[in-house]
Design a protein around this nucleic acid. Sequence first.
RNA 1: GCGGGAGUGGCGGAAUUGGUAGACGCGCUGGAUUUAGGUUCCAGUGCCUUCGGGUGUGGGGGUUCGAGUCCCCCCUUCCGCACCA
Length: 823
Amino acid sequence: MSEPVEYDPELIQEKWLPVWDEKAPFRSGNLEDPRPAKYVLDMFPYPSGDLHMGHAEAYALGDVIARYWVQRGFNVMHPIGWDAFGLPAENAAIKRGEDPAAWTYENIATQKASMRRYACSFDWERVLNTCDPEYYRWNQWLFLKMHERGLAYRKDSAVNWCPQDQTVLANEQVVGGRCERCDAVVTKKKLTQWYLRITEYADRLLADMDQLEGQWPDKVLLMQRNWIGRSTGAHVDFEVEGRDEPVTVYTTRPDTLYGSTFFVVAADSDLAAELAAGTQAEEAFRQYRDEVKQASDIDRLATDRPKTGVFLHRYATNPVNGEQLPIYASDYVLADYGTGAVMAVPAHDQRDLDFAKAFDIPIKVVVEADTDPQETGVATADDGLHVNSGPLDGMGKDDAIAAVIEQLAADGKGQSAVNYRLRDWLISRQRYWGTPIPIVHCDSCGEVPVPEDELPVTLPPSEGLDLQPKGTSPLGAATDWVNVDCPSCGGPAKRDTDTMDTFFDSSWYFLRFLNPHNEDAAFSPEDAERWMPVDQYVGGVTHAILHLLYARFFTKVLHDMGLLSITEPFSKLLNQGMVVMDGSAMSKSRGNLVRLSDELGSHGVDSVRLTMVFAGPPEDDIDWNDVSPAGAKKFLARAWRLSGDVTSQPGVDVSTGDPQLRAVTHKAIHEASQAVESFRFNVAVAKTMGLVNAARKAVDSGCGPADPAVREAVEAVAIMLSLVAPYTAEDMWSRLGHEPCVALAGWPVVDESLLVEETVTCVVQVNGKVRARLEVSPEITEQELQAHALSEPSIVQALDGGEPLKVIVRAPKLVNVVLAPLA
RNA sequence: GCGGGAGUGGCGGAAUUGGUAGACGCGCUGGAUUUAGGUUCCAGUGCCUUCGGGUGUGGGGGUUCGAGUCCCCCCUUCCGCACCA
């Protein structure tokens, strides 16, 4: 029998991949499966080209977790699919004349092949693509359910507009005033668009985060909290002369109401236009408003930009003292936050102060402070005693807020209020490659939902459609598709031509995985009871706000619909870092792109996976220049060689093996388990390396290759390595005389009795400095240990005849002898 | 500006509740094997040292018998939000 003597990654990849295809060790569909269920989910990829280094890291980490729980005896569902709708497909279509669908499915095939080669432990029978009608049909169904509940609605408003992509963007997709996708400067445009009423869930999205505390990264929870941006304060009504209705403002500091000296409305709000109409300021206002509209968000972002505005020649009445406050229109007040109008208190709000200084408006201090805003130009926003505030004088902030709200409520001029930064989610997109919105517009019936039994509303073929962005959906040109009979009255009507934001698709895909081909429902509640919530979600921190917030929102909506008992979709979240090169993100233009296929070719799949896992903590970025796939390969070869050295037979009684090596083995298993469960995968690998080193030594210069303890150690190595380096592990397993699959071998059971150490190293310090090390029994008493330590020659010498002031004994690990401090 | 992390050898990184700092690996040095290179195996590797020891986790202070770990100030750096009333 001729054994291969060289570790050849290419060879073992070719050898085992077909075997795994046949055995399908990661199928999770059997309902009779007695193993407890666990749902491990990797964020699904967008199919733009082949997999890259970032995918390789993310999927290597997710795979360690999934494979670990399989080894621990769980029925692990670890599915994968493709987030397949979206702009890149369309852009490729425009640039190269390809069909978005064909382009997408080709890329999916490429990525799928790469994932198989990469040996991800996915259940290949649960694959879904969001661009398949059998998937997006349920997008449409969900949309209609939300429409029914008033959660999907259309409104007319100024929206974020990307002039490059010629489509609207959700607030969340505008990053620093630029389009998240193409980096173009975002402008505003007034359009009628579909929204989801996520703001109705703001309080629950906030409150339920308590469930996630400690399970999600603190950073993500914080980002979500900030994004939701709950604040408490009051709504206050201001009468405006010549207007029937009062104007309401939202403020977090109603206690400073006596310090208000002017009033500001958002320049781009309807209210501003209305107030300006017919005044002598009308022309000036119009001019100013047009300037503001011209200015992009990026201009608005400049922090130290001077305050601008127009006096509207109108006045609002301060409800607490009847003072007449001049009304200004300015762009420093946002139309879509609060009520789009503010009471300005220059002494205690920096923005108001800046404006007051620019427009020479009086500043009235109503909260005592050490500094004078008038002189310093710095508004004082801290707590303090109230002055010049009528009944509030002498009160602190909290008391004053309570008192003024009580007074306002009694007068019918205000009440306490909660406000959120979160806005409703704009989901309409004027693009082709997405889920058609299942609504028909009828002149006589209005917005008519497409009847459920007519779903899906499938996309018309792209052939013949001009996909070039032009501000309206390309679907509008598919006349045969657009013109339909009204489902309500039968008269001529038109389909809605917008498609859904692809974040809609990814907001519930984790539920579709439960039964991706279910034709009767989006998912069955029974399946959800069995599998949900996702036990472990793995993905990039880039989705810390958007995707995760939307998925949480959908889960709550489905809960309210009675389809889910849970209220949070993801119990645990791990955000892996990025793979960078020379300190910066890889990109073609930077010329620092490392191609995954090249790395896999030169080092092998297992070496690349091991490199990803061993590089450091999973949350940290990996600089590919700092790590060593060649080193990883060296280690794998070293481990693999061990499997050929073992001469005992499978099933040999290990209890007779070398006790020293056995102790090392069991300690390594124990520590690696703990490391995996606490996401310290790099440490788990280090422990495995330690065991390999110990086994090597045992074979070469210790108990020898025939000792059963060597087999025990090497089998443990194979199983531990199966999480990270599945090919190498499978080949080792085979060389050790076992049948595949090592992935199902079961995690080695730790014999607790072997973890008990016979001796412990005790450190003896003098004045906190280590002077001696003693090998002592773990059961040694404090008295014995102290006596032992003090009689140790090196300690006697270190004491130099000095009398110990105190001796601290922490048996069995430490003795600290404290001498009188030196003069 | 506001909020949140992070600073440990030449490098990536280890270090339950405060108790041996630098696990594991990369790199480097030396040795063995090899015709040579590569591979493999062994040994060494924080810094200084008069070889007794001294010193050391961004800087400074504090608590403690004892601090990488806890507290205060500062520096550097990364990330998130950014006129949110």
